[in-house]
Write a protein that binds this DNA or RNA. Sequence first.
RNA 1: GUGGUAAUAGCUCAGUUGGUUAGAGCACCGGAUUGUGAUUCCGGGGGUCGCCGGUUCAAGUCCGGUUUACCACCCCA
Length: 435
Amino acid sequence: MFKTLPGFREFYPEDCAKRDHLFAQWRICARRFGFSEFDPPVLEQLELFTEKSGEEIKSQLFEFTDKGGRAVSLRPEMTPSLARMVGAKANAIRRPVKWFCIGENYRYERQQKGRLRAFYQLNADILGEESLAADAEIIALLIDTLRTLGLTKDEFKLRLGDRTLWVLFLQNAGIPEDRIMNALGAVDKIERVRPEAFTGMLADALQGIDLDTALLAEKIRAFVAIKDIDDMPKAFQNGSDAEKVSARIGQWKELLKTLSDMGVGEFVSPDLGIVRGLAYYTGFVFEAFQTVGTGRALAGGGRYDSLVKKLGYPDMAAVGFGMGDVTVADLLDLVGKSRSMDLSPDAFVAITSETLRADALKTVFELRRKGLCVDYPLKQSQLGKQFKYADSVGARSVIIFAEDEFERGRVKIKTLSTGEEAEAELGAIFDALKK
RNA sequence: GUGGUAAUAGCUCAGUUGGUUAGAGCACCGGAUUGUGAUUCCGGGGGUCGCCGGUUCAAGUCCGGUUUACCACCCCA
């Protein structure tokens, strides 16, 4: 027999109902915030992805050569496609660009819980706006989306980090420009490894540089531990960057105040441990984590002002995030807040005698034309069976076509939740259901 | 890509020191019930015991390999 490929999912109707509820909430939230939906292709030319992240990313791509000899790949993320679509019309597009997208992404990696080879993501981005207002709007959307799904501040939080401040700190510590990204790569792992291992990684990143890496590692650990923004300047050794640092701290305060004004401040904690893996982030970066259970990341993002230009388009500021469906759904399950799209029919038309089928069908299709979701038995069956079926599909009402009432031009309507029965004129069934 | 654990019905699982025709609950289908469901009772279908090979008179059970899943690494856009 055939199986699904490793890491791929198939959605039976119940799974679809759950997934579509999630998508519906994502859409509602993004639209409330004034974002427009876009949808790029699933398959792109390989270089679109390697351009941004380098050749080594290939091992995680679903890439192949198509019949026309083109090197192509399923998309591992949306951002490069977004950058291309916006970049192609950069000088003709209304700004700010507030776009979102819901789509499946593909990564060829070993799967484990919360990480599959195919997964959906909500992506939301603001392009063409440099100010912190855009960072705040994006972060607020991320938080509000999780909140709309029913999650509270006891169940998740957003950790806010800052690559700009990190670059200043590492420069201040004497690390040359061309090694800062290497050092940040080590910092990104600081929470996941033992202290000695971190010192080792830092030493690797700074090989050939005349610095006391053990001492530097100590300073970095102290910097990461700072949770109060007023304490951040103290980590910088004497002066030359004092002005830049205090300007950046001012931006921190501005961003946090805006988030607080938006009513989402309680979800946000400053946290320099968040730097994000990839090189293209340039300013504030953030990740939302569940604070119950396994503590997995639910969503992540940040500012990436240089990416659009790097892909060959006009310079354009950008900030955005991605939120995966798997970890979010796992968390909702864990805290008992999982919901499904309500797909139950408004009515089930029961047919007690085949001589009435033609009239029953007429009613079924009239009600459907008026927008109701209506089901009926495809073959002759006992009334008890029909009720059982109507109940199991969650129908709200059963409309009974039976000889007695029909001769009087009426049908019986039973409301399943209450058991109440009423009669209605054949021509007034729609109105009767509305009550 | 590396390591650990597991795999029996659609799902959750039981299956004794290797021993007749591999079971249960749930789900599904039918009947009791020819005008009434969300709770009953009865019956039915459904299995190459993941796959390949080995040991044995005999393998769901023991051994080797393999695939897949889960967990931990690697990585995480």
